[in-house]
């Protein structure tokens, strides 16, 4: 299928589920929620940056922003701050959303979660002192929210912020000795854990441009090895984002994206998050 056709298919699949208030729910017919809207907005920045659907979604996203800049999953779950990075990415570079983007960037650089000096006798193998970003305010840093934070600050022109550098160090520290990442633990009780595609993609994407290729060779090898068997949108989307960031995009990626899109009815339809990550994988990264 032609490049333009895939863009169109993905765009339509997203836009047709947009809620009347401009936001997105995770599934058609559900009320809008900030996380789904943040994912859809980020994807639409890549798919259809001039479209009215994006404009309405970005406005709706601002309505969820709290005074300190955070954009939580739901207003009543203010600790669940991870959509903030996606919101920043979606707003970045658009003059009418500059104030919102600035507030969220300030929020992201102000939160640090919970970290302590590493304990050599402790059960976990990573350096628990290095700060990235957590899924939830007040928790420990993990791979995907940290990668989303790096990508958001970088895409909004804040790549030189010291938090970006530290976050990359944190991601590098969490890389598994054999290659790849999972959610963010390396060893537990001296047993090396296993990588996952959806952990490895964000790790690779966040380190691109901030680490030498030699540092991620094992992870690239794991991603390349994983790619042919992936047929689900989150894993495939993230691996494509990660490999593209290192100029290792697999041949035939577009056909694979379409094949995955065609499987969407297998379990009753993809969530907005799944569709969005597939779209971002097709695009090859964050907008």
């Amino acid at each position: 299928m032609a490049y333009a056709d895939i863009r169109s298919e993905l765009t339509v699949a997203l836009v047709e589920r947009q809620v009347a208030d401009g936001g997105f729910g995770q599934l058609p017919g559900q009320p809008s929620r900030a996380d789904a809207t943040a994912w859809a907005s980020t994807a639409l920045r890549a798919l259809d940056p001039a479209g009215s659907a994006l404009h309405r979604a970005l406005v709706r996203l601002e309505e969820w922003q709290q005074t300190d800049g955070r954009v939580p999953v739901e207003p009543g779950q203010a600790h669940a701050v991870w959509p903030s990075s996606l919101a920043l990415t979606a707003w970045s570079g658009i003059p009418e959303h500059k104030a919102a983007a600035d507030r969220t960037a300030s929020f992201l650089t102000s939160i640090s979660g919970v970290h302590v000096e590493p304990d050599p006798e402790g059960p976990v193998g990573h350096d628990t002192s290095i700060v990235g970003w957590a899924w939830t305010d007040g928790a420990h840093s993990w791979i995907e929210p940290t990668a989303l934070g790096v990508l958001a600050l970088t895409s909004s022109g804040r790549g030189a912020d010291p938090r970006v550098d530290e976050a990359r160090r944190m991601i590098a520290d969490r890389q598994l000795p054999s290659g790849g990442w999972n959610y963010g633990n390396t060893t537990v009780f001296d047993r090396e854990l296993e990588p996952t595609p959806e952990g490895t993609g964000p790790g690779l994407a966040a380190l691109a441009g901030g680490a030498p290729a030699a540092d991620v060779q094992n992870s690239l090898a794991y991603a390349i090895e994983s790619w042919p068997r992936l047929n689900t949108p989150i894993a495939a989307g993230w691996i494509l984002i990660g490999l593209t960031a290192w100029d290792q995009r697999p041949t035939g990626a577009e056909d694979s994206v379409m094949a995955i899109l065609d499987r969407s009815d297998r379990f009753g339809g993809y969530t907005t998050e799944q569709l969005s990550l597939l779209a971002l994988g097709w695009h090859g990264g964050m907008p």
Binding site: D35, V73, Q77, H79, A80, T136, A139, Y183
Partner: peptide, 12 residues
């Protein structure tokens, strides 16, 4: 989406 992966809030 509310508690993180792997359910960080509950682990803490």
């Amino acid at each position: 989406a509310v508690y993180g992966w792997p359910k960080n809030v509950l682990h803490f």
